[in-house]
Design a protein around this nucleic acid. Structure first.
Lengths: 223, 223
DNA sequence: AATTAATTTGAAATATTTTAAAAACTGCAC
DNA sequence: GTGCAGTTTTTAAAATATTTCAAATTAATT
């Protein structure tokens, strides 16, 4: 499910956009105004941003530039019809496309998909703000990076990608260490401990998610 | 220099487009009609295609579909104004953007650049004063030039153009040395060391940007 | 309370990266 | 061709970081 960030200073427009996108199963986050938008950008990872460029507080161009500096996320500008000069300016600043109000549902979705299709797909899972990203080899929570060792990283990745499923110590060794590893089961415990500690430190409620299943092993539970 | 394929069935329109793009140093190939266009696509590699969708011989949609099957090249449709339904259709078929006739030079170029930027890493990247420029084969920091060997130059370029992504030693060898190189992974380390030293010397805080990911490889992080 | 399992702890064993220096190679001028 | 200067690769050591493992402690189960 693709995560979309909607930035507009009109509550009504946010609702409208979200309504349009609902049937397509996008996961929409609504940001009322540029400040809130930028805050979200810093805290979470999005697949695409829809940005209204006519906001009074801080102009859309600044937001566009800021976003580009912080990440590579594709941006679609939402703008009033017939302002070609502005459009060119936006594309120069780093936006990828624009759509003019009033717009129709079909075009909006088509443009979003065209951009998403071209953006490189990554391998990642996200749970309540905790983001596991294989390509970056990073685990982060609200833009705080948690430095993990390779074993810790693989371990939590496996569990997060299969929420609900219990893995015994032996299964974990087979899957993370590789089949026929000589490693003993108790070793897993050490890595689990170290990992839990590191994640606790950044404020993520790891104990609500990463559970010990007594006498069996460990599991990640989806809230 | 970016290679552009223009497909239209009017000689005049081809000339016009080429004329528009001339000052921007694109390398334009003109294809008169869809047949010729598809032939070029099969024979050469282009960075972008401008496709007129109103052609009598074979309709633009088929061409669009064909091109997408043959390659990943970004496509901008050129179309008469106010045919929103058509636009949506095109975006679904694999086009990335459209522009309506009559168009102005600025918008055309802006759209092309936006697409090229996303499709392919550009010819130069800049991070906090450190400038990597492929055309000049130069890395510089605050107007001090850092003399790098070819391997060092490619290495840092690859990493700077994909900030955040981890590259394993083997991936780096495939990408920088070329696939099927016999070079061993440890060799990368040597080049990394030499490069770090050279960049450190001019005062750039390379260690804040160029990170070792223990047990995995190296990555460039965007601050 | 007895039993069993999980967690913590720290130190030893392993693995990886960095450093440094030597060897092999390359393109170029003579 | 030969020799040179610079580049690239290889190699081996020292420096770091991770992984393992076993003993001590704590927690859960019966």
């Amino acid at each position: 499910m693709k995560k979309v960030l909607l930035i507009d200073d009109e509550e009504r427009m946010l609702e409208l956009l979200a309504l349009y996108l609902k049937p397509y199963h996008y996961d929409c986050r609504k940001a009322l105004g540029p400040k809130e938008g930028l805050q979200y950008i810093e805290e979470e990872r999005f697949d695409i941003v829809l940005l209204d460029i006519m906001m009074p507080d801080m102009d859309g161009w600044s937001v566009c530039r800021e976003i580009c500096q912080h990440s590579d996320v594709p941006i679609i500008m939402v703008t009033a019809r017939e302002q070609k000069a502005d459009i060119v300016k936006g594309l120069r600043l780093g936006a990828d496309d624009y759509i003019t109000k009033p717009f129709n549902e079909e075009e909006l979705v088509a443009r979003m998909n065209a951009l998403l299709r071209r953006a490189k797909p990554g391998n990642h899972v996200e749970m309540d703000g905790l983001l596991w990203d294989r390509d970056r080899f990073e685990l982060s929570y609200k833009n705080q990076y948690i430095k993990l060792t390779p074993k810790e990283f693989s371990l939590i990745g496996l569990l997060m990608q299969n929420p609900g499923r219990v893995y015994s110590r032996n299964q974990l060794i087979d899957l993370v260490w590789g089949m026929y590893s000589e490693t003993e089961g108790r070793t897993v415990d050490s890595h689990v401990r170290n990992m839990r500690e590191k994640i606790r430190e950044v404020g993520f409620p790891i104990d609500d998610y990463f559970h010990t299943v007594w006498g069996v092993g460990y599991k990640w539970i989806r809230k």
